[in-house]
Design a protein around this nucleic acid. Sequence first.
RNA 1: GGUCCCGUAGCUCAACUGGAUAGAGCACCUCACUUCUAAUGAGGAUGUUGAAGGUUCGAGUCCUUCCGGGAUCACCA
Length: 580
Amino acid sequence: MNLFAEIRELVITCLDALVAEGRLPAGLNTGAVTVEPPRDAAHGDMATNAAMVLAKPSAMKPRDIAEALAEKLTADPRVDMAEVAGPGFLNLRLAPAVWQGIITAALTSDGFGRSDMGQGQKVNVEFVSANPTGPLHVGHTRGAVFGDALASLLDFAGWDVTREYYINDGGAQVDVLARSVYLRYLEAHGQEVAFPDGTYPGDYLIDTGKALKAKVGDAYIDQPEAVWLDDVRSFGTEAMMELIRIDLASLGVEMDLFYSEKSLYGTGLIEAAIKDLDSKGLIYKGKLEPPKGKVPEDWEPREQTLFKSTDFGDDVDRPIMKSDGSWTYFAPDIAYHYDKVQRGYDQLIDVFGADHGGYVKRMKAAVSALSGGKVPLDVKLAQLVKLYKDGEPFKMSKRAGKFITVRDVVDAVGKDVTRFHMLTRKNDAPLDFDFDKVTEQSKDNPVFYVQYAHARIASVLRKAVEAGIVVDDTTLAGADLSGLTHEAELKVAQKVAEFPRLIEIAARTNEPHRIAFYLYEMASEFHALWNRGNDDTSLRFLQDGDSSATQSKIALIRAVAVVISSGLGILGVTPADEMR
RNA sequence: GGUCCCGUAGCUCAACUGGAUAGAGCACCUCACUUCUAAUGAGGAUGUUGAAGGUUCGAGUCCUUCCGGGAUCACCA
């Protein structure tokens, strides 16, 4: 239940009543009417812009509308006060019983904050999709964490979510992998090997080379590439995907589906997808102009098979077939998205690294063309992560096979810290990741701040149990909450009430980072209330000898714990019950 | 040169997709633990939101043009 939506309903009802009484003209569009928390809490609990957005269409003064509306609203028992302010805002103060009701709702509803706004629509979230040529490195971490949290968020908001990983196992890079594994295989047989340019020199392939030796013995020694390439390629790819699965698991990411690019070949799916586009008149043979301004040195016009992506907002048409007749990378990608559309998703989301930004328009164009504009594709770019250690930038070199892996990061700072920190930035803004700062256990570090709030609540609950108070949620929800009227307590309840609304905003904008910021604010409100208890003993959660008052206060902080736990759950962070 | 992203307090970032006097944390100063965990809280200062125009009741947010930073740019995936 979203309280803001509920009050908005009330506002609309009151407007309708005014229309019925002839105090407002009929036929007004109330779509732009919003009910929001005011930026400044002093203005009240909620504010509506109704008077301002309706002033022009009704040819009335905002203040007149606002005053009439205020009169109607205050007749409702939920509204204690409605006051016209500023240019025509209507500030509302709600009855304490409303906030007390929120606490009950948080304790009794199955998944407080869950929304049905997704209406069970099927959404596919594709993320990570790193090449199967080695373990995941830090660059992939952000996309992995972001995609996973976004998927959880959409699930929480009522979508039917599939988490999917596209394995790029069909291109030249897996041949490079195969050759690199082969070198490690020779090495396992005692040969001296060198890693020329265009091979992967990383240590992680040593074991793969040994494993290959264990499997095929010396069968591939001194054999031409044609003999072993296919087998070593699939052997190597399998091994790398196994590594990647482990890396993902260490981040708490579990895919529903791994989809192989290779599986697209030879099944006719690529041909079918291209044929679909061709039937829409979007495939033609032609030559592209050189890129404007900066012509590559070896540029020469070539006749290629092109997709008319400019019809869908792209800058140039894109090649799907090389001049030698083989597919470009784009072709299987079109087929893959074609398959996703065929599988009946209502909505597709791709999470790309920032270096794939140039790919967004053509992919959107393809999906738009393939689905007849019916299936929206949203592409989220995960910007780069800059690593720091001791305040110094940390460089990686893929060339030397030296790079920081996901596991290095998780081993150093832990899954929870990694995930939370990665989610404290908008996905399209660059992010600094300082190994020293993120492990610091202080207020500087939002993870610990939020965790600490949850742990404090758990601690109070333990003390309450020792004092013989019954603290299960059902009992607490049934407790008499009418004593919770102090503004400090109501403030906390109000923050709890924002959670369902926040979930819907975060889901609508595909921005899980909003949850991280909300949780920080929620924790802050809680810590503030806790410390008020130092000065004012009536605000302490455990009230000696007054089990009824204690129960109502415990109910309040249990509601906070429910929200923190639930929000952290979406981010994939474990709520802590104690921190020692 | 084209395209995309970013530019907000000394630093790191928010700002509920167009709402009120642009907010937090860090750093700096003052204060609060015989108490449910001080890993916390209360208070104090900080702004031409990169610049200039435009749209309207109202702009950090939308449009245009610049400036600065990053990413990317045809037979690479």
